[in-house]
């Protein structure tokens, strides 16, 4: 039984695994951080935030000293599962840590 958790993430409750909602690819233990099962890349900021000014301190593009953009992809279908704007080197966020036992109980598994 798969439970929808976010726009792009399911949990297979019986197998206790994270899955891609789009293609069903398994991402690893549902009790762990799903990000460990994804492909990760730092995206050049100017690819996403078009600078409208050149040669100035501010340009509508984040300052890379403060902020980097990390994208997390499904290794099978290339879906963008999520992203994070983080200072350089800051740990990725374990943003969803579900009580799998309670979830299984809720769904009668």
């Amino acid at each position: 039984m798969k439970i929808r958790i976010t726009e792009y993430l399911d949990i297979d409750l019986a197998a206790e695994t994270w899955c891609c909602h789009g293609c069903g690819q398994k991402f690893g233990n549902a009790r762990d951080n799903y990000k460990k099962g994804l492909l990760i890349a730092e995206r050049p900021l100017e690819e996403v935030h078009q600078p409208l000014v050149t040669g100035e301190q501010f340009s509508f593009k984040p300052d890379p000293d403060y902020c980097r953009l990390i994208e997390l992809y499904c290794p099978n279908c290339g879906a963008l599962i999520d992203n994070e704007y983080l200072p350089p080197g800051h740990p990725l966020t374990h943003d969803i840590e579900l009580d799998i036992d309670a979830l299984k109980q809720k769904h009668g598994i």
């Binding site: 990000k35 200072p87 350089p88 080197g89 990725l92």
Partner: peptide, 29 residues
């Protein structure tokens, strides 16, 4: 094509984090 490019560009978690952890913002900020 964009999806395929993502798969080609992305790195597994441990590999990515090994490089990412070396970064830090400048001390003054």
């Amino acid at each position: 094509e964009v999806r395929q490019h993502r798969i080609a560009r992305g790195r597994p978690y441990d590999e990515f984090m090994a490089e990412w952890r070396k970064l830090t913002p400048p001390k003054d900020i």
